[in-house]
Computed example of a mutant assay.
Amino acid sequence: MKVKNGMILALVSFIWGTSFVAQSMGMEYLEPFTFNGVRCLIGGVVLIPCIWLINRLTGNGSGVEKEKYKKKDLYIGGIACGVLLFLASSLQQIGIQYTTAGKSGFITAFYIVMVPVLGIFLKKAVGIKVWLGVALALCGLYFLCINEALTINKGDILTLVCALVFSLHIMVIDYFSPKVEGVKMSCIQFFVAGVLSLPFMFLFETPKLLNMGLSMGSLLYAGVLSCGVAYTLQIIGQKNMNPAIASLILSMEACFSVLAGWLVLKETLTIREGLGCIFMFGAILLAQFPERKVEKVEEREATDNG
């Protein structure tokens, strides 16, 4: 099960990484709140037929599953995730205007450090190999993203807060995903994030249908795949998985964004960036091993106590 979850999260990181290309192209015509708002609403709309189909195939959650399903947890989790998604994506889009893309990517990826730190306060066990994996991943992200001296400015601070919000988003998903239907919670979070973007879009930006039409390809990729598919798979993949491990796998989006930029936008992939990708893969492999050992010990203890 854990291997399957890890593969799902790896697919999520791939979609998110390649969506940076779509976001970069879409921002040529649209402003941050407009782009984020429209893509989130598209993501929510796309999931509605998915929910209908799942209900048809599963008998609308009848029997035991229906008793386990709690609407209160669904709405609270969906709204909480939506608010956090809105805050994080908005801070990232605004912050990148005042800092470089490389520094923004590096600082955003600090959620791989923040998640296990936050997990300590929630009594989430984190082994030494996970911490070593985090350190190795940070080295990889440094090689991938940082090419100049690290300084702090307005954009860096905004992006650092964005990383904190993304880490909270991961922790909230970790808490609610075992309790609710993932697709429904994902649908709610997109509509919440999209609706929250609307007043800021009309107050501070000048949305135009013509510009939306010019960016439709980017909006559809970011809305259908990055939002509708990837964030839903994140909720499913994170179910019953250590959030520290999940954050490491999701941080692979940095590697995929570099590769996507190289293939689609013809950006150069340097030896330094290739080395960063190797560090990232190594970090994820290292962090996966202790979890399996811990699970076996827990299973043995449960058997003994049973």
Rank of each mutant, 00 (worst) to 15 (best):
K103H: 10
M25S: 15
F121N: 11
V117A: 09
V195T: 05
I173G: 03
I15Y: 03
M241Y: 11
Q238E: 13
C145F: 08
F14T: 13
I51D: 02
N242D: 15
Y221T: 06
L275D: 13
V12N: 05
L248T: 04
V180M: 08
A246S: 12
T34Y: 00
I278L: 15
H169Q: 13
G133A: 09
E299V: 13
P49T: 11
R300S: 07
G105R: 03
V12E: 01
F204H: 07
L158W: 08
A222F: 06
A193L: 05
S247E: 07
D304F: 15
L263Q: 10
I42D: 01
L225T: 05
G119V: 12
G237D: 05
N55E: 14
G127P: 04
T99P: 00
F86Q: 02
A10I: 09
Q93A: 07
L141G: 09
I8A: 11
W131F: 15
L210H: 10
A230G: 00
Y221K: 01
Y175G: 14
G105L: 05
F143G: 02
N153Y: 12
Y231I: 14
I235V: 15
Q23S: 12
Q93S: 05
P290K: 07
K72Q: 14
Q238F: 12
A222T: 11
L144N: 03
G213T: 08
L286P: 06
P49W: 10
A287K: 06
R292D: 15
F202P: 02
F106R: 05
V180W: 06
G119E: 10
V180R: 01
G282Y: 09
N55R: 07
G63T: 09
Q189R: 03
I42M: 04
F14K: 02
G17C: 11
I249Y: 02
Y111G: 01
K72D: 13
G77E: 08
L144T: 05
L285P: 02
V229W: 04
S90Y: 03
V264F: 10
V12F: 04
I271Y: 07
